[in-house]
């Protein structure tokens, strides 16, 4: 499966999730430009001469949707906006006839595109260097394989394992690792703020952190291998979440006490929704530090920690 096929497959799945839109396009194929590049008819030649302008269009993704009410002449604008404040759902988008307004349509596609980019792009090497991470990768060779072979995203070659061993402290109290997961954008957006918050918090409890690993093509259970290899008491994995239309920059922390390959999923503790519209990265970092301390004290994680 090549990258194009894969993209169009994901697109059609996403399109299914917003069924109305599909129906709309089906009813009026002559109007709606289909987003799939594979099915697009050849572009019609533009009649007039093209004028090149230096102007830059406004970035519509900068608009805060919670404050944008497109319903014309609403009965209770204040009440509507108050409701919108509480949800990222696209409420109050108004309509043009039976359709979305242009801005709604464009924004939907822009957010969709950002979600795709987050999956298919890589965390930049400069960023990894800047954050002083030790880069390694799983057995996946590229994004396509990463998406289609989850089993490979949780395994490392012998060579890589040797690198990990050489760069980490054996039997450390805490081992932090970062994985690109399904959103590289999430890593680049949150890491700068969450790492110092975690290390500062851990220091408060007298805990040191050694080198931080960066795992390319990383699935969550990769942390179990790191647990086995480093024999750390607690492994904390910061990983990009599957992006949605609300944000492409959401990160999760999966934390487990003595994780090991094949352990039940219930042993993982999770802090999800770390992004600018969810839990702020700095506050999440402070919380994670305390959680790690509790795990070390109680020698447990996940469901066991809650009981």
């Amino acid at each position: 499966m090549n990258e194009k096929d894969l993209k169009s497959m994901i697109e059609s799945i996403l399109a299914d999730m917003v069924g109305d839109k599909v129906k709309e396009t089906a009813q009026a194929p002559q109007v709606a430009a289909t987003p799939q590049p594979v099915t697009t008819a050849p572009a019609q030649p533009v009649a007039s001469a093209t004028v090149v302008s230096d102007e830059i269009l406004d970035d519509i993704t900068e608009i805060d949707l919670r404050k944008l009410l497109l319903v014309e002449d609403p009965e209770d604008r204040e009440g509507y906006l108050k409701m919108k404040e509480k949800t990222p759902a696209r409420l109050g988008v108004g309509r043009a006839g039976t359709r979305y307004k242009t801005i709604t349509s464009l924004r939907f596609r822009a957010d969709h595109a950002a979600a795709q980019d987050a999956v298919f792009s890589y965390v930049s090497e400069e960023f990894i260097k800047e954050m002083n991470l030790v880069p390694v990768q799983t057995l996946c060779v590229d994004k396509d394989q990463y998406i289609t072979r989850p089993d490979l995203g949780r395994q490392f070659s012998d060579e890589t394992i040797a690198t990990i061993k050489a760069n980490t402290q054996n039997k450390a109290k805490v081992q932090i690792m970062v994985g690109d997961g399904l959103s590289s954008a999430a890593i680049e957006a949150n890491l700068r703020n969450i790492i110092p918050a975690i290390t500062q918090g851990l220091k408060m409890y007298g805990l040191e952190t050694g080198n931080i690993l960066f795992v390319k093509h990383c699935r969550v259970p990769a942390m179990d291998v790191i647990g086995d290899v480093t024999e750390a008491d607690v492994v904390c994995l910061l990983v990009g979440e599957r992006p949605g239309l609300v944000t492409a920059e959401s990160m999760s922390a999966y934390i487990a006490y003595k994780p090991t390959v094949g352990m039940p999923e219930a042993r993982r503790s999770v802090i999800s929704n770390i992004h600018s519209g969810g839990t702020p990265a700095v506050e999440a970092g402070a919380h994670i530090a305390e959680m790690i301390k509790n795990m070390l004290e109680r020698k447990a994680s996940g469901i066991d920690l809650k009981n």
């Binding site: 918050a197 500062q200 918090g201 408060m204 839990t279 506050e283 402070a286 919380h287 530090a289 305390e290």
Partner: peptide, 13 residues
Amino acid sequence: HDMAKVLGQTLYA
């Protein structure tokens, strides 16, 4: 705003 945990930890440090 939601920032008391990290702010408190920073101050304590």
